[in-house]
Amino acid sequence: MHNLSSLLVLLFLAITFLQSGYDKFTDYQGNLGWLKEHFKGTFFDGKVDFSLKIILILELIAGLLCIVGMIELVVNNGNTFAKYGAIVSCVTLVMLLFGQRVAKDYDGARTIAIYFIVAVFGLYLLE
């Protein structure tokens, strides 16, 4: 039961980012079409494809680091990969939040803020 809070936060982040990355990967064109419309008229217009690829890569890295971090915590009580997972999660969420604010999707931004609180709390637990 040692590190239970950290493990639960890492599991939450791993599920969040791996599922989101999987969805973006398996329905890339659908996501791309929706996001092109979402960012139409903003400075992201014309940059959505590149931005989506960056977010996809960061989400997969965050999720994988959280999984490896969980294993490291259980096996040898280390937290290096867990910290990196939480940091990449925070950076990814800030990028997503910025995009939602640019698109003036304030409900989407509010949802991302909730995930961000969990990620920062996880980082705090791992310090």
Rank of each mutant, 00 (worst) to 15 (best):
V9L: 11
H38L: 14
K24Q: 11
A103L: 05
M1F: 11
L7H: 00
D45W: 05
N77E: 14
K83F: 05
L8M: 14
G69R: 06
L97S: 08
T42M: 10
T16E: 10
G108D: 14
Y28P: 14
G78H: 09
S20H: 02
L123D: 02
K83P: 03
I55L: 06
D105I: 06
L60D: 07
L35G: 05
E37F: 04
A82C: 01
M70C: 12
V120A: 10
L18Q: 06
D105Q: 08
F98E: 07
L4T: 15
N79M: 10
A119K: 00
L8Q: 12
L52Q: 05
Y28M: 09
A82F: 03
S6R: 09
F17T: 02
V91C: 09
D27V: 08
G33Q: 12
L123P: 15
M70A: 04
T42S: 03
F50E: 11
L126G: 08
I114A: 13
C66Q: 00
I54H: 01
L52T: 01
K53S: 13
I114T: 05
L18S: 12
G99E: 02
E72F: 13
V9Q: 11
F25L: 15
Y22V: 04
L97E: 10
F25R: 08
M70D: 10
G33M: 13
T80P: 11
L7Q: 06
L32Y: 13
L11T: 14
K53E: 08
F39V: 01
L93W: 00
F44C: 00
G122Y: 14
T42H: 13
A119F: 03
V9W: 06
L96H: 02
N77D: 15
L32T: 06
G69V: 07
V9D: 13
I71W: 11
Y124P: 00
Y106Q: 15
L13M: 03
I71A: 11
D49T: 03
L56E: 03
I112L: 12
E37N: 12
Y106I: 10
G69Y: 03
L60H: 01
T111Y: 05
S20N: 05
C66E: 00
L126R: 00
V120N: 04
K47L: 15
L123I: 04
G63S: 00
V120M: 13
A109G: 13
L13D: 01
I117G: 12
Q100K: 08
G108R: 09
L4S: 15
L65C: 13
A82E: 00
L58A: 10
S20I: 05
E72W: 11
A14G: 01
T16W: 12
L52K: 08
G122C: 07
F25H: 08
I55M: 03
E72M: 12
M70P: 02
F98Y: 07
M95Q: 10
N3A: 10
I112M: 13
A119L: 07
G99T: 04
G85M: 05
V75D: 07
I67V: 14
L10D: 08
L13N: 02
